[in-house]
Nucleic acid binder design. Structure first.
Lengths: 361, 361
DNA sequence: GTGAAAGCGCTAACAC
DNA sequence: GTGTTAGCGCTTTCAC
């Protein structure tokens, strides 16, 4: 272990001295080269790279008020729904010359607020994905900063919403068509707009198809929580479940298998978000959405708001659809009856909003 | 769409005026409250919150040289290996009061360097995970900034390495024990330390067990690339594959299934990283590691280097082990012979470094 | 086309 | 304990 004094980075005036010009010229050589003689620019740049000069963006921000940074805050980086979104947003931001701060609120509104406060003066804007903060605080924030929301429907703010309604409708219709007369919605985080949207979509679709609807809450959008509620589900006298997300579905799948319930023969399961692709077994039928698209759009919205110095309140809806794989089948004769029903007609082909996927295995 | 002038954030001197004190006092009320009368602190804080004052960290950084930020750069956020690592690192950083920049290099060394340059003046240190940059540039960077590496073994720098050797040894031994006499290693990104480590570990283990070793390159650590190399693998007269990561394995599994090769009866597959858990079908046997642990350790190493203003070169090895699930079985009589072999003894229990997992489904 | 100098918001001597 | 003031590195009027 060594204690080393790192050599201090060269500043604009080091370069100025070396190039025999003023600091203003160096500054312009980087931010407004068109104001300078081409020759000068080259000279300055030459010495700059020779010295290893890199502009100090924080200092620049201090005088311009433009930080060149944005922040993205998510409730759980490790939830596979977010990484593609994050990646797309970061790529779009980078393309526009912005760097991005990442915050993980761990599903906790207070942590989220703390993160936001720590970042607010270092960024020009925020992307809040599935924010768990109360509306009031979001609106307060939006008074000082550009804010774009993902999966949160706060009027007055630009937002991109993954519109699960279409997909959920297709899912319930799919179940109805397979002869199911009852289902349970397994809900996710109460503070989640997506959950509220999904819950109500399931509810109206169930009414439409005259199906009995039960409901049970998974304490966390995770595999374990999904497995935990298995017994509750089994005790419920329903033949199908739609879950808040794919993880809960995956956990439920595991729980059902442990209890000897064969999916999809005895029970049908539909997930949401389609993040597990076809990798579960049986391959999960799920409501699919382009979550990377959501990230890209949010970033683009933010960028354009920043660059044009405006504030819009675009409400951007992203389509969803049902991807039918192997966890849905005709309803058993009685719920969870372990009937010897083997038929698996997959008759949904052609139904609007439904896509038949070949499993990858 | 409205064009709104956002009200400028109050500064330290606004607060000073309101509280009837000097700017220095306000500053101290936040950074060194112990220097002030308790009463004064309360007064100042009161007016600060009333005005909605939040310290401008960039400005603070300018005068202290301490940004309170770090950066994490990864080659691909969307690769599930990284999100848990990211999350753990971000959490640890946040706990220590640091905010974190996120960079995705998209596996491109030049993009990585560009990202680093853009961030270098705004952060106190970097975590480079699976960096694709040449050693020279990493060392240059480490001259100006604290750098902690993950999965990159550059002497002189602090680094945390996921030591796949143990896991790979166990994997090859497991195959040998099952009667396999040949295998192929499906390699990943050439610039990846992990790939080099895995390749050479497979190689020496193959020698040890007197197994024939082939090798084929997947152009990208992805499902698609894994599926693409399927024919090459089939043409190879081997009975098992170890892949660079779980995605390639998953793609290979899909490709094999499409070609009518039954896993594990006809062919055994072992992945690396164990990010798919038991969700593939058949459930993937894989070399497992705690990647979140790697993130946490890297962050802690960085934090402690920053706080103690030192530079160590700790080389931190993280254990791996083999998780046996359902894609490995006794070798078929001849390679890819479609023999009717059904036995699946899973006899590896008790072998060191091997863990038998129950599939979740 | 280029330079001098003020100032962005904050901290850290140094006074008192 | 608290105030004054000189910078931190950069941009940007305003001169020249």
């Amino acid at each position: 272990m060594r204690t080393i004094k790192m050599n201090p980075s060269p500043t604009i005036s080091d370069v100025a001295k070396a190039a025999g010009v003023s600091t203003a010229t160096v500054s312009r050589a980087f931010s407004r080269p068109e104001m300078l003689r081409e020759e000068t620019v080259i000279q300055v740049r030459f010495h700059a790279t020779r010295l290893g000069y890199l502009p100090n963006l924080a200092a620049r921000a201090l005088s311009t008020g433009r930080q060149g940074n944005i922040a993205i805050v998510v409730p759980d980086i490790a939830n596979p729904f977010f990484p593609p979104l994050l990646k797309a947003a970061q790529t779009a931001a980078d393309l526009a010359g912005y760097s991005v701060f990442l915050g993980d609120s761990d599903e906790d509104p207070e942590r989220e607020q703390r993160l936001v406060n720590k970042l607010v003066m270092q960024v020009e804007g925020f992307i809040l994905a599935s924010s768990r903060m109360p509306n009031k605080q979001i609106l307060e924030l939006s008074e000082r900063q550009s804010v774009v929301l993902i999966n949160r429907d706060t009027p007055g703010l630009p937002r991109v919403l993954i519109d699960t309604v279409a997909g959920i409708n297709a899912a319930v219709a799919h179940l109805a068509e397979l002869g199911h007369r009852s289902l349970v919605y397994i809900s996710g985080p109460a503070a989640s707009w997506s959950d509220q949207q999904r819950r109500s979509a399931v509810s109206s679709a169930a009414v439409l198809h005259k199906m009995k609807l039960e409901s049970v809450h998974a304490r966390h959008p995770s595999f374990d929580a999904g497995r935990e509620i298995t017994s509750a589900v089994i005790g419920m006298d329903v033949t199908a479940a739609i879950t808040f997300d794919d993880f809960v579905a995956h956990g439920l799948l595991a729980g059902l298998a442990e209890q000897g319930v064969v999916v999809p023969r005895d029970f049908s399961v539909i997930g949401c978000d389609d993040v597990l692709g076809a990798s579960t077994y049986p391959a999960l039928t799920s409501v699919s959405a382009r979550c990377d698209e959501a990230g890209r759009m949010a970033a683009d919205l933010l960028m354009s708001n920043l660059q044009m110095d405006k504030r819009d309140d675009t409400r951007c809806l992203l389509e969803t659809w049902l991807v039918v794989r192997d966890t849905t089948a005709p309803a058993p004769d009685s719920s969870l009856s372990r009937a010897k029903k083997k038929a698996h007609p997959k008759s949904a082909i052609g139904t609007p909003g439904v896509m038949r996927m070949r499993s990858t295995v």
